[in-house]
């Protein structure tokens, strides 16, 4: 599997840390690479889709790193695919056609980081309210929020 990946993506894209194989894929190749990994290499389980905001990370070259964790249920291999994105173009193709499980995971990444998944059937906020405007897991959003949590009417005993 690793050899096939090496010939496809080149040596520089592969790395390993604590026994976990990782590959960096350019955004334009993402759809075809994922298709190839699923159909030819047997990665039938999409474990997770997540994102890292490298805004305050030391020596980071890109703003966002999208992470796909794949697993092969037959051979128990795992593979981490990473895609780097920069503002303002935060769009990647959606993986919903390949793995149905990507649906909600991509919606969550959209909600928390504002990454746009092109071709997603229902790309709406999933955890935060519809009208919320910020993306809370970005590093420029404060932990305590911007006062949204205090903005409600107060009910007293006389009122209800």
């Amino acid at each position: 599997m690793l050899d096939a990946l090496k010939t496809r993506l080149g040596d520089a894209a592969l790395s390993e840390f604590r026994g976990q194989s990782r590959a960096i894929v350019p955004r334009d190749d993402l759809a075809s690479t994922m298709q190839w990994l699923k159909d030819d290499q047997g990665f039938d389980l999409l474990v997770d889709v997540t994102c890292v905001d490298y805004l305050s990370y030391r020596d980071a070259e890109h703003r966002f790193g999208l992470v796909y964790l794949l697993a092969n249920t037959a051979t128990n291999e795992r593979l981490t695919i990473r895609v780097y994105l920069d503002e303002p173009d935060l769009a990647v193709p959606s993986m919903c056609d390949l793995w149905c499980g990507a649906n909600w995971l991509e919606r969550e990444v959209f909600d928390m980081f504002g990454i746009e998944f092109r071709g997603h059937p229902n790309l709406k906020r999933i955890l935060m309210p519809e009208a919320f405007v910020a993306h809370p897991l970005r590093k420029d959003y404060p932990l305590q929020g911007r006062g949204e949590r205090h903005n409600f009417p107060v009910l007293t005993r006389e009122q209800a």
Partner: peptide, 15 residues
């Protein structure tokens, strides 16, 4: 949970 989403005490909004 002193975070953006959690109400810091329900007594701010109901008795």
């Amino acid at each position: 949970f002193d975070t953006y989403a959690v109400v810091q005490g329900i007594d701010r909004f109901i008795p």
